[in-house]
């Protein structure tokens, strides 16, 4: 397990361009009596989707709030060359954000919100937002407080997708949404994402829900980075073997990261270097992100 926990914090490699959209270097945020995040570094290029995974209190929201300029922090953060606190207005022309909790002003009507956003955001298209909303049950005259949780997320997404920003940060965006809303949400999100040179960060508990979207993963545990790799590297570096229990002692020698007992067989998570040796002992599968996430969270740091 130690290899996994101390994996290199190299920058993700599968980039479509060399233009750096977001750069985080040695970012640390401490509260009065505890660590929020410690020494986090990563970069995002156009086309990359970074999954920010971790349990409650792992530091995901702290890191996101630092990216948005909501926290003071140690270290360096740049979004298209802008500092989140010192160049906040310029930075927000390139960055959008959707949160798990409703941050939209409840006392505004949808029409008023669109008018305000059009007035202050130079790259927002009210027409586009209205067009998106016309495919939903959201009325322009409705007060935001009258909308359901799912509708609020839809409205926020309609605003984001009508804004020509390059980096989007999503913090547990589908928490509390039913399956239909989730499906619509990710469909619209992907359409927007492929519409230009963009990068995304998605923080979520629902690992399996976002797995297919990600190009890179950063897993946090108690404020520390326990795994940071591209999906390609993860597929290369880890695998699952489903082997009969009589091979257990042999597999134990390969330093498995986790095991999951079944009926007469056990599923083992192993590092890629042992793939050739383990192949003859059982059925080999590609590792799922959920398996890897559980492995990083159950292992004592």
């Amino acid at each position: 397990m130690s290899t996994l926990l101390h994996s290199k914090t190299e920058a993700p490699t599968n980039t479509s361009s060399t233009k750096k959209m977001l750069s985080v270097k040695n970012v640390t945020k401490t509260y009065s009596n505890q660590v929020g995040v410690e020494n986090i570094s990563f970069e995002l290029m156009p086309g990359q989707v970074l999954g920010l995974l971790g349990h409650n209190g792992a530091g995901k929201s702290t890191l996101i709030k630092s990216l948005l300029g909501g926290h003071n922090y140690q270290g360096d953060i740049e979004v298209n060359g802008y500092h989140p606190i010192h160049h906040h207005a310029e930075l927000m022309q390139h960055l959008s954000y959707i949160s798990d909790v409703n941050v939209l002003p409840e006392w505004m009507s949808v029409r008023q919100l669109l008018r305000y956003t059009e007035g202050v955001h130079p790259s927002f298209s009210k027409q586009k937002a209205k067009q998106t909303l016309s495919n939903t049950d959201i009325k322009l005259s409705s007060k935001i407080r009258q909308l359901s949780k799912g509708m609020k997320v839809q409205l926020h997404l309609a605003i984001i997708t009508a804004t020509d920003t390059q980096v989007l940060i999503l913090d547990e965006p589908t928490l509390g949404l039913d399956l239909l809303y989730r499906d619509t949400f990710y469909r619209h999100l992907l359409e927007w994402f492929h519409d230009g040179e963009r990068a995304m960060i998605i923080a979520s508990h629902e690992v399996s829900e976002i797995e297919h979207l990600l190009t890179d993963v950063l897993i946090l545990k108690q404020g520390h980075c326990v795994l940071q790799k591209s999906i390609e590297d993860i597929e290369r570096d880890y695998f699952i073997i489903d082997a009969a229990n009589n091979h257990s002692s042999e597999i134990q020698k390969l330093q498995p990261l986790t095991s999951q007992p079944g009926l007469g067989t056990t599923k083992w998570l192993l590092e890629g270097q042992y793939k050739a040796r383990a192949k003859s002992l059982g059925n080999v599968y590609n590792v799922g992100l959920a398996d890897l996430f559980l492995a990083t969270q159950t292992e004592s740091a």
Partner: peptide, 17 residues
């Protein structure tokens, strides 16, 4: 208090403005 500060913060408006 009402929790909308992160929304206003997400707009490209400077603190001085």
């Amino acid at each position: 208090q009402e929790g909308s500060s992160m929304f206003w913060r997400s707009m490209p408006i400077s603190n001085a403005t």
